[in-house]
């Protein structure tokens, strides 16, 4: 009888210890596959409010888009989709989502103009840009693409070929998903809701 009690106690102690050590040292929620592959990460840019870092927005979902304001078509379309998807969330949820339109054309797009441009689509979409070095570093980190193309006969002077994807950053600051440019607001809303 005495031995039985002892063994029961020992058994419970071992189970409790195993549980505690699993909680402390066991596998955490795995990093998203992009983060595991080293894609994404923090960066520094300039917005209308000054210097910003991605890490400033921990706890929020950040939707990153690389574009430029002279882009008459795919950029405003993507911003419209983003704004519509965000508006489908309730007020509290909206405050946890931040669109970030990163202009790869700092020569033409100022932080103040970018702010007015993005706020037109949603008060939760913000603009930022940076030096060519900063932009090149982020584009490389995220596996994005842009290239300036001379247009001799056009009043534009030059245009920018660019990747048109939406990068979804989870509330831990990790790149969690890369979304096609033609995602519709319903699909984007579902993606957002999954993290809220």
């Amino acid at each position: 009888m005495r031995n039985l009690l002892l063994y029961t106690f020992l058994g419970l102690a071992v189970a409790a210890g195993a549980y505690v050590s699993f909680e402390l040292f066991g596998p955490k929620a795995p990093l998203p596959k992009y983060a595991q592959a080293g894609i994404g990460g923090d960066f520094k840019l300039t917005s209308v409010e000054g210097e910003i870092n991605l890490s400033d927005y921990k706890g929020e979902i950040v939707l990153i888009y690389f574009g430029f304001m002279s882009c008459p078509d795919v950029c405003p379309t993507s911003m419209g989709v983003m704004g519509t998807a965000i508006r489908q969330l309730d007020d509290a949820q909206q405050q946890k989502v931040r669109g970030l339109f990163i202009s790869v054309d700092p020569q033409r797009d100022t932080p103040a103009e970018l702010h007015a441009y993005t706020q037109y689509f949603s008060d939760r979409i913000f603009g930022a840009t940076g030096t060519k070095e900063q932009i090149d570093a982020i584009v490389k980190q995220y596996g994005a693409y842009y290239s300036f193309v001379e247009m001799e006969d056009s009043a534009l002077g030059y245009t920018v070929d660019h990747s048109a994807r939406i990068y979804l950053i989870d509330p831990n600051g990790q790149l969690a998903d890369i979304l096609a440019h033609d995602i519709n607001p319903v699909e984007l809303h579902e993606k957002l809701a999954a993290y809220l």
Partner: peptide
């Protein structure tokens, strides 16, 4: 004209 190839948007006169 705009074209989308390999996820890259290109605009040309």
């Amino acid at each position: 004209n705009n074209t989308m190839t390999d996820g890259k948007m290109k605009m040309r006169q």
